[in-house]
Design a protein around this nucleic acid. Structure first.
Length: 303
DNA sequence: GATCAGGCCGAGT
DNA sequence: ACTCGGCCTGAT
């Protein structure tokens, strides 16, 4: 295996290990890992090759590679972010299989059709604060645009980790930045939401942990008090950042699936949401991710 | 140059 | 409770 040199000095705490560590039977395929990392739930992953990716989680650079059904990883900080943290981040444990088992794919051909080509697709367990930031940036923007804007903020205000990689600055740092500065960074009308949220979070260091510990509906109500957070973004943030698997974000793609594939023509948004929660159950968010990736990959176009 | 995006919010029905 | 237009910016 080639040594991966990310340009860090030898005594840096964030130097990458030379060897790859491996996780057997991860359940991922190249397709499902790619969609998990790049399919709109996270904006910090970059594909290096067809089967390898690099991303920044907290202050850790993580590199992933899938070969021969084996998942390989390298962490820049294996003491703090090692096997256990990688497994948790990627939802590699038995609870994933249990979640898949609870989805109604056996009696739902639409869902089953989406799941088949994406075996192993996960909901990532990302840092809550970072997910909130990225999804506040997301309205009416494409994935590449969100990635680029977020990356610029990390570059300007985050920590330089080497290799052109930067950490998410955190809300404490963001709260020191003016709205007009955000507008210079092309946030557009999202600038006032990021600014307002940063001001709200200032002096509330426990807010994220508190919300995470709340039941889904309470947490949803709490998150929706933030400026720029409506139902859709609240559900994204809770699903991807707080492991609230009941969350079922309905964006335009999912709306299309519900309308066209489940024939909910003429149903209101709240009726569609009721249907989804009832039909898909407590892992509705996982079903949502299969739909999102399935629609993106065009599984419905093939008849 | 117009129009429209992976949404939110406030105003009006 | 639901519909509508405005909002920044960038891509067609």
């Amino acid at each position: 295996m080639t040594k991966v040199n990310f340009g860090l000095t030898a005594n840096s705490p964030r130097v990458l290990s030379e060897k790859w560590s491996s996780i057997q039977e991860s359940g991922f395929t190249v397709e499902s890992l790619g969609e998990t990392l790049e399919g709109g739930q996270s904006f910090i992953w970059n594909r290096l090759q067809e089967n390898s990716w690099v991303g920044v989680i907290g202050l850790t650079i993580l590199k992933l590679r899938l070969t021969d059904n084996k998942l390989l990883w390298q962490s820049s900080n294996p003491q703090e972010f090692g096997h256990e943290q990688v497994s948790e981040y990627l939802w590699i444990d038995q609870s994933y299989n249990a979640a898949i088992n609870q989805l109604p794919w056996r009696s739902d051909p639409v869902l089953h059709q989406c799941m088949k080509p994406l075996t192993g697709l996960r909901i990532l367990k990302q840092p809550f604060d970072e997910v909130l930031f990225y999804f506040l940036l997301s309205p009416v923007k494409s994935i590449p645009q969100i990635k680029e804007t977020g990356n610029q903020v990390a570059k300007e205000f985050g920590e330089n980790l080497g290799h052109g990689l930067y950490s998410f600055p955190g809300w404490e740092a963001l709260s020191e930045i003016t709205e007009s500065k955000f507008r210079e960074l092309k946030f557009g009308y999202r600038a006032k939401n990021i600014f307002g949220t940063a001001q709200f979070l200032k002096g509330r260091p426990d807010w994220f942990e508190t919300v995470k510990s709340m039941p889904y509906m309470d947490a949803r109500k709490e998150v929706m008090q933030l400026p720029g957070v409506g139902e859709k973004i609240a559900d994204c943030v809770l699903l991807f950042g707080a492991s609230k698997m009941e969350s079922f974000p309905i964006d335009t793609w999912i709306d299309k699936v519900l309308t066209n594939r489940y024939n909910l023509i003429g149903w209101s948004q709240s009726q569609k949401l009721d249907f989804a929660r009832l039909h898909f159950g407590k892992f509705a968010g996982l079903a949502q991710q299969f739909f999102f990736s399935g629609e993106r990959l065009g599984v419905f176009d093939k008849g």
